[in-house]
């Protein structure tokens, strides 16, 4: 059985305008739990994206910050996260050097139990069955984990698994997903095509606008050795907000794609048991 089947389809992208309204509505109406982690500042990223910081900073609506670790090398970032809420909780990530940090934490919100682990101790990493075993061990309905830098949320065997990803979109040393590799591949291919195209369009200067663009490009060296593909290599920056009422958890997934913040909403309802 593949857990991915259970993963809810991501909501269709909301238009930027709507997103803005969305975001403000969320921040105005509820007290929320922020799940954020794998920041890897300064080793792999300079900072939390400005747009995220702007969203988070003034709200005062964040009841609790759950940090999935890999942040403590940046004192400034820790201070920022601590400033978001009086209640700041953190579990140890593999690059957090303080051995006194807890490896896992459990909280009860209303009728739901929420567990927090970095994920480096899950073997194999992020394996759904292993996560499930971990959730059973911790007796939690929702398990928030990190370490893969991939934002993800799915229900498996009645439990809810949430990975808020990396808030900085930090480089991950694990192999890239095939999907991402394909994107990069496609990008590289496209540029190879363009390069060859360019030679042909040189002779036909009817589209002046296009020519201008080409000329700009010409200043840069041409061979694919020098393509800027960093953008396609890096994970998407993301974090999550959880709103828990009774046995329902509404999860908001925030991602930064092409400079725009996108919000997706997923609802998890714990099945009442005898």
């Amino acid at each position: 059985m593949d857990p991915k089947i259970c993963a809810p389809p991501l909501a269709p992208p909301i238009s930027p305008k709507l997103t803005a309204v969305w975001v403000s509505v969320i921040f105005l109406s509820k007290m929320l739990i922020l799940a954020i982690g794998d920041l890897h500042i300064p080793e792999r990223a300079v900072d939390i994206p400005h747009k995220f910081k702007k969203l988070l900073q003034p709200s005062g609506r964040i009841e609790q910050v759950l940090c999935l670790g890999n942040v403590t090398n940046s004192q400034s970032t820790v201070e920022f996260l601590k400033s978001l809420s009086l209640d700041f909780q953190i579990v140890k990530g593999e690059f957090d050097r303080d051995l006194n940090l807890p490896l896992s934490l459990v909280f009860t919100y209303d009728k739901l139990r929420v567990g927090l682990v970095n994920g480096f101790q899950i073997v194999p990493k992020a394996d759904p069955l292993s996560l499930l075993a971990q959730a059973r061990l911790m007796d939690v309905d929702i398990l928030i984990y990190g370490s893969t830098h991939k934002v993800e949320a799915y229900t498996l065997d009645g439990r809810f698994f949430v990975n808020p990803g990396s808030a900085t979109g930090a480089f991950s040393s694990s192999n890239m997903d095939q999907e991402d590799l394909d994107t990069v591949e496609a990008f590289i291919e496209e540029h190879k095509v363009k390069d060859t195209k360019k030679e042909s369009t040189d002779a036909a200067p009817e589209e002046t606008e296009k020519k201008d663009q080409e000329e700009e490009k010409e200043e840069k060296p041409n061979d694919e050795n020098t393509l800027e593909i960093e953008e396609y290599m890096d994970p998407v920056p993301s974090f999550c907000l959880l709103d828990i009422q009774g046995s329902v958890c509404t999860l908001y997934l925030y991602t930064l794609i092409d400079g725009d913040v996108k919000v997706d909403k997923i609802t998890y309802r714990k099945e009442e048991q005898e």
């Binding site: 890897h40 080793e43 792999r44 480089f171 040393s173 590289i188 694919e224 393509l227 960093e230 290599m233």
Partner: peptide
């Protein structure tokens, strides 16, 4: 404080070179 950052930047270059074949 600084060397780990260097390491990661270089490792990212490694991946980049690989992706660029």
């Amino acid at each position: 404080y600084t060397y780990p950052t260097l390491v990661f930047i270089v490792l990212k270059l490694v991946r980049k070179l690989n992706l660029l074949k």
